[in-house]
Design a protein around this nucleic acid. Structure first.
Length: 947
DNA sequence: AACTTCACG
DNA sequence: GACGTACGTGAAGTTC
């Protein structure tokens, strides 16, 4: 059909689809050979959805997907800097470009690109031709550069948000009708495309000027009439630059196309060709959906051959993992191991392949108290077995004891067979959260090595994107939902321990865990090098497993008598305060209830300024109460009440979270407290401590600090603590390359005083402590992605003043601002930021609009700094055991920038220099910091003395 | 289970 | 031009 009146042309901005797909999806790879295909998958999904949806209502008669050919166009000849600050496409995206063209053709859509022209020029040319022929045009894109084409039968469609963009929407965005958009763009410029425009003129001002003068040429001709001196000067000075900018933003609607509109007639896809392509890409879900749509059978086996066009661009990567034929999950096929011969058979399979996925089942999540119930093994996808060892029969007898279930190997016999394999240096043991299993085996005298951990692989690749628990990983990367543990042990009060679970059910569940772990490992292994995080995984994550396991098993001695005494004192003082508080309130109420307290203060006593949160309750946080304590003159009763509540809250916190709770965490067998560190808990690379959290033991208040007196060394031993001094500021000085900061650290100066001196021009000698305090707050603020609001609140000063401080700071240290800008730009471009050591922290939401993007922005600024500090102490911890091997000393705790040891009295003076050297040199040799790292040491009978 | 508060670096 | 903001955690208690 010839294109004419009544025809409707769809023009799809293919390149935008690709980048959107690439950034929206995790880096998927083709299973059989590891070829990156995430963007292709997303692209296909978007095209498929487009065909399904966009064509329903207002079906096109003609359509084309248009791509950019290369980054070199006639515009780069006009202005060499045009789009020059665009980074090259990521390594793993480049091989996907030709595949998206292939995909377009597989969907039987016209696929158009042209050397020397941008996709936008082709779209402009086709849109003009269609308009002139009397047809309608819909441009599937949200690119503002295309908005100049809107009008006269041409409109845009933002496929993501399903928004139509007509002349009104364009005018809402640019403040001028579509035909004047190029004039506004020419004035405002575009930092993304590096269109210069006129400095200091943004869209708002540009729109104003164009409304007044009509277009750029008239405006420039009459520039001398402009009243505002600044605008006038700018326009006079930058007239040529604005003229070039206009040429850059004006789309060429006369590109010499080698095809006509008639060639773009819509055709249905050939289902066979489409299926063949999707199948070759190994997109299972999409293949299935297409098969359903066209009523075709799904191809069964994975394709043996790979199409020549789809070959990876590089051959430098290691050999791909063994091709994984699609094996369905079949829990009923898992083997239950009940005798030595069967166990030996499974272990021989591991000896043959060199790998073994393992998972333990126990009676508790606390590895120090958990009893081993069973071990599952997997040697290939779908090949899994379960070895029950500690299952018991259903009912308890009169004494609450229970008999072992039948058909289980004796524990000792089974472990004797397992031990040589688990310790065999030629057999890789694969686990999900291996630290748990490592500790269980260690308590049976087995040192599991070497290991791989799928949770840590996921963390190295996807930190910030999603969690790393097995269930989530299985659903995400294996498209398989595992059997929920609740189905076996129940939940809540009715929950039972795993030893009570019937062996056949345990076999299905536990075998599946090992099976999933193995398949995840197969999936992740080729992905690590492609994400460039193999070194991170191998040097910062995996080696930490045995180190942390040993620390956790060692535990720290806690003097419960000291804690109990403190609890009693706190209880008495709290009772007294409670009486006083209720008298002041004139009624009894629960002092621990923020809701009741808020109502009494703000409704009952009439304190002004109560602010309700989203739940409708008044906020009564410490900062609010502190404000109220200053209302002595207007609300003396409330001021006093607030002060008492603050005291009560402090005691309540110390008692419930620390002095009471810590006592319950003392292990009855070891008499010590064993925390658990999560390696993949914090997005930045920091560890997190749980059950109990020993990383937030009080220290800032005198009262709280006393709790550290309960963390003690046994007779004849000492606690030694070493902590990095200002490690994050040192990292900032290095990465942002700030000469003054680096110099100060090299000379061992007081960094906050130096900052104050630089900012305010006051001498360091005899400095007002107030000024130093403010500089310190700014130094910390910088690390957190400073804002005037945050600094103002922290320092309790007007926002304007805080803004002045920040301006002054950036003026004095301009490198900090450029570092921040570069970090945010990297996050927007790549979707992640990296530390000095290559750790990746993803930054979802950084490209969002709205208030949330501020959070993402600050997180992106903070992550490389906090993350590098975390990397450094990880490196120190990994080297520490070997370094202190000959000393009677062991590492017990880590608190982000501090390491705590227990050491024989006689070895204290030998430990400190050794540990200090390891910590101070921990960045070397991978990164040579241009500032020294300093670790300060202390020792004593308790943590309070050592810190 | 969600929310609030508060302990740490 | 308005919006909501310091970064990263975990635990306990109250409320729904």
């Amino acid at each position: 059909m010839a294109f004419g009146t009544g025809c409707h042309l769809h023009l799809i901005d293919g390149s935008a689809f690709i980048f959107r797909a690439y950034h929206a999806l995790p880096p998927l790879t083709r299973k059989s050979d590891g070829l990156p295909v995430g963007a292709v998958a997303g692209f296909c999904n978007m095209v498929f959805r487009y065909i399904e949806e966009a064509r329903n209502g207002d079906a096109p008669t003609h359509a084309a997907v248009v791509f950019d050919y290369s980054s070199k166009t006639f515009r780069s000849d006009l202005y060499p800097q045009y789009k020059a600050n665009r980074p090259p496409p990521p390594e793993d995206l480049r091989p996907q470009f030709p595949l998206t063209r292939e995909a377009t053709r597989a969907f039987n859509l016209a696929c158009k690109e042209m050397d020397g022209f941008e996709a936008d020029d082709i779209i402009a040319t086709l849109a003009r031709q269609a308009r002139e022929a009397g047809g309608r045009v819909t441009i599937i894109s949200s690119d503002k550069d295309l908005m100049q084409l809107v009008g006269g039968g041409v409109e845009m469609l933002d496929a993501m948000k399903n928004l139509r963009i007509g002349p009104e929407e364009v005018e809402a965005k640019f403040g001028v009708p579509p035909e004047r958009v190029i004039d506004v763009q020419a004035l405002a410029g575009d930092s993304v495309d590096n269109v210069p425009g006129a400095p200091g003129i943004g869209i708002k001002t540009a729109a104003q000027l164009i409304q007044e003068y009509g277009d750029v040429e008239t405006l420039l001709a009459r520039a001398s009439e402009i009243r505002q001196p600044k605008r006038r000067e700018t326009l006079l000075a930058y007239a040529d630059q604005v003229r070039i900018s206009k040429k850059l933003v004006t789309l060429d609607d006369h590109a010499p196309l080698d095809f006509t509109l008639d060639d773009l007639e819509v055709k249905d896809p050939d289902p066979r060709e489409l299926m063949d392509f999707l199948h070759r890409m190994e997109f299972r879900t999409l293949t299935r959906r297409v098969a359903e749509k066209y009523g075709l059978a799904e191809p069964k086996a994975a394709p043996a051959a790979v199409s020549p066009t789809a070959a990876p661009a590089t051959t430098a990567d290691p050999a791909p993992a063994p091709a994984a034929p699609e094996v369905p999950f079949a829990p009923e096929t898992y083997v239950c191991i009940r005798d030595g011969a069967t166990l030996t058979d499974w272990l021989d399979r591991a000896r043959a392949t060199g790998w073994l996925a393992v998972d333990t089942e126990t009676t508790s999540l606390d590895e120090m108290q958990a009893d081993l119930v069973g071990v599952s093994l997997a040697t290939a996808a779908g090949q899994a077995a379960y070895l029950p060892l500690g299952h018991v029969k259903g009912g308890d007898d009169l004494f609450g004891a229970s008999e072992p279930a039948e058909g289980q190997m004796p524990m000792a016999e089974a472990l004797a067979l397992l031990k040589p394999v688990l310790e065999d240096p030629a057999i890789l043991k694969i686990g999900q959260n291996m630290k748990y299993d490592w500790k269980i085996f260690a308590r049976h005298g087995i040192r599991t090595a070497p290991i791989d951990d799928t949770m840590l692989m996921s963390y190295a690749m996807f930190a910030g994107l999603h969690g790393h628990g097995m269930d989530a990983l299985s659903e995400e990367y294996l498209a398989h939902k595992p059997i929920p543990i609740k189905e076996l042990i129940g939940a809540g009060k009715a929950q039972v321990t795993f030893d009570k679970v019937a062996i056949d059910k345990a076999t299905a569940y536990s075998g599946e865990d090992a099976d999933i772990t193995f398949r995840l490992w197969q999936t992740f292994r080729p992905m690590l090098p492609r994400a460039h995080v193999t070194t991170v995984y191998e040097t910062l994550e995996r080696p930490l497993v045995p180190v942390l396991a040993e620390m956790e098993m060692a535990g720290v001695k806690v003097d419960t008598a000291v804690l109990a005494r403190m609890s009693n004192v706190f209880a008495q003082r709290m009772a007294g305060l409670e009486d006083e508080i209720q008298t002041l309130a004139g009624q009894p109420f629960n002092v621990g209830s923020p809701k009741q307290l808020g109502e009494i203060l703000f409704d009952g006593m009439g304190v002004p300024g109560g602010e309700k949160g989203k739940t409708g309750a008044y906020g009564t946080g410490a900062d609010v109460l502190e404000d109220i304590t200053t209302y002595e003159d207007t609300h003396p009763q409330a001021a006093k009440l607030a002060a008492r509540v603050l005291d009560w809250r402090q005691l309540s916190k110390l008692k419930s979270t620390y002095t009471d709770a810590l006592q319950t965490h003392v292990n009855p067998e070891t008499g010590r407290v064993h925390t658990s560190y999560s390696i993949a808990g914090a997005n930045t690379g920091r560890l997190a401590s749980t059950d109990p959290n020993l990383q937030n033991i009080p220290v800032r208040s005198d009262e709280g600090r006393k709790i550290r007196e309960a963390f003690v060394a046994p007779e004849g031993r000492r606690i030694v603590s070493l902590d990095y001094s200002q490690i994050e500021l040192r990292i900032l000085a290095h990465v942002a390359d700030i000469p003054a900061l680096k110099q100060a650290f090299l000379e061992g100066q007081d960094i906050h005083a130096m900052t104050a001196s630089e900012m305010f021009g006051v001498p360091i000698e005899g400095m007002d402590p107030m000024i130093r305090r403010q500089a310190k707050a700014i130094n910390f603020g910088v690390i957190y992605g400073i804002s005037a609001f945050g600094l103002a609140r922290n320092l309790r000063i007007p926002r304007k003043e805080a803004q002045d401080f920040i301006d002054r700071y950036f003026q004095r240290f301009p490198g900090i601002r450029s570092y921040m800008d570069e970090t945010v730009a990297a996050a927007k471009r790549d979707g992640f930021v990296s530390t000095l050591f290559g750790r990746r922290i993803h930054t979802p939401g950084i490209n969002d609009k709205g208030p949330k993007s501020g959070n993402a922005r600050r997180a992106a600024i903070n992550a490389p700094i906090q993350g590098a500090a975390a990397d450094i102490i990880r490196r120190a911890m990994i080297r520490m055991p070997e370094a202190i091997r000959d000393l009677d000393a062991r590492m017990l705790l880590q608190v982000h920038d501090e390491l705590i040891f227990e050491v024989a009295e006689a070895d204290v003076d030998r430990l400190i220099p050794v540990a200090r050297d390891i910590m101070q040199g921990a960045a070397d040799p991978v990164v040579h910091l241009s500032v020294p790292l300093i670790a300060e040491a202390g020792s004593g009978h308790s943590w309070a003395e050592a810190h």
